[in-house]
Simulated scan of single mutants.
Amino acid sequence: MQTTLTKKTLSEVIKERHSVRKYDSTYTISQEEIKDMLKEATQAPSSSNLQPWRFIVIQDEETKKELRAVANNQEQVETASAVIAVLGDKEMYKSVEKVYRSAYEAGFMDEANMNRLIEGTNKTYPFASEDILKNIAAFDAGLVSMQLMLIAKDRGYDTVPMGGFDKEKFAKMFNIEDRLFPIVLISVGKAAAPAFNSTRLPLEDILIEYK
């Protein structure tokens, strides 16, 4: 007897996604599938489409064990199939020509528009403060991270985002260049125990005004 798999709606995926901290340490996700999920996640929007996110994927068992010590001894760092570190690029504007020339060559804009956007970016971003650039990159990293977690859930995996880790030690551990900074770690794998249920504040507590 054949069973028909029903594709879940986006609403169902959103409601079923919870932060999982107990993983099946024997389960492996292929590098190919992780790359596929990352590629899909990068369809997320970003400021001026400069895509200031970078990723480090950690699957090596020994490296995960070392990372656990840097990440406040959080068990899921070591037991999940992979940990994906999301980094921000403070010099995202240096990719501007590649970004807009790619759009031009794909037929998404004409040459005049490409040149206008490149010129506008080069007149603003390089002169912004480091704090502003980091804020832009961190905001955009949040968008791609949430998209990645929903994609993983849609494929039958669970995740948990972790901001609680020593970012300075992480940067040294992976020899990260100065223009990049770590933002969040995301464990991905098969749950070994259900997540704790949680509630949300009622809408009337968070909707300030509706006109």
Rank of each mutant, 00 (worst) to 15 (best):
I14M: 09
E62C: 04
V188K: 09
F127W: 08
K64T: 05
K134S: 09
A193D: 11
L150G: 05
E12K: 14
S95P: 01
I136R: 01
G164R: 08
S81M: 07
V144I: 13
T26F: 10
A103K: 13
E40W: 03
A85W: 03
A80N: 06
P202Q: 10
A106F: 10
T42Q: 14
E75I: 10
G88F: 06
N122F: 09
R116Y: 00
F139G: 10
N122E: 14
V184L: 15
P126A: 12
P45M: 08
T121P: 02
T159N: 05
T79D: 11
N197C: 00
K35G: 06
E62S: 14
L150D: 03
N113M: 00
K39C: 04
E97M: 01
L203W: 01
M146P: 05
F196R: 13
A112C: 06
I58A: 04
E177H: 11
D178T: 14
K39L: 08
A152Q: 12
A69L: 15
M162F: 15
N122S: 06
E209F: 14
L87M: 10
I136Q: 04
I84T: 04
D24F: 06
Q51F: 02
V188A: 02
V86R: 03
N73I: 02
L150V: 01
N175M: 10
D36G: 09
K153A: 04
K172V: 06
E105V: 01
